[in-house]
Amino acid sequence: MQYRRKQDIHMSAVAINPLNRAVRFYEAPIGKKAVMAVTGVMLVGYVIGHLLGNLQIYSSDPQQINRYAAFLHNPSNALALWGVRLILLAAVVLHIVSSVQLWQQNREARPLRYYKKADVPTSYAARTMLWSGPIVAAFVIFHVLHLTTGSILPLHDIGPNMPDVRYNVVSGFQNYWVSGFYIFAMILLCMHLYHGLWSMFQSVGISHPRYTSKLKKGAAIVAILIAIGNCSIPIAVMAGLVTY
């Protein structure tokens, strides 16, 4: 039990170059968590943008959403589109890799589990990050296969680089399994975002006694709005409110 260690206790003035700083940053769990926060912000931004785009399906002009898709797929925008896609892909990869690394380290920090362990009720969303994360990831893959690559159901096109989004969405959501999975995934996304949105402030150190409860509420509202927006589409399709 006796302990005695030598270590340099003096403030060292060695200038650290940016590369060293980056390595040191990513090696530290706090750094990884910050990476998750920053990539999380990017992904949430994308989710919101994506949702706003999708909501155009409710436009009184049935072709509105297809025009929007055509705009995105216009070859003159290809560079930007792929740029954004690559950035998003990198964010997703970083988000997942750092979370897996943290998860692994944290699991090792308690080799012997408790015989009995209670959980604090308020932390429900936080504790579900572990499986809400992978399921949401699986959903994203499914979503891309479904509506981007057409590997699940055949996609209709109006013309070259002009997908018939309205048709693809409606025909997809008329399938109860597909809609069910969408809704389930969106509820998990909601929980994931609820914890993630608040958590990312915490991870980069934005927190103050006066604002914490507001931040938590704000995160909940944003997460729920996103879920409602996203779930409304399959529901509307199934209810026959959105048709082709």
Binding site: Q105, N106, A109, D119, V120, T122, S123, A126, H195, Q202
Partner: peptide, 11 residues
Amino acid sequence: ELFGSCTNIGE
């Protein structure tokens, strides 16, 4: 010391 790290759970 092999402590784990914070994932903002709050327990």
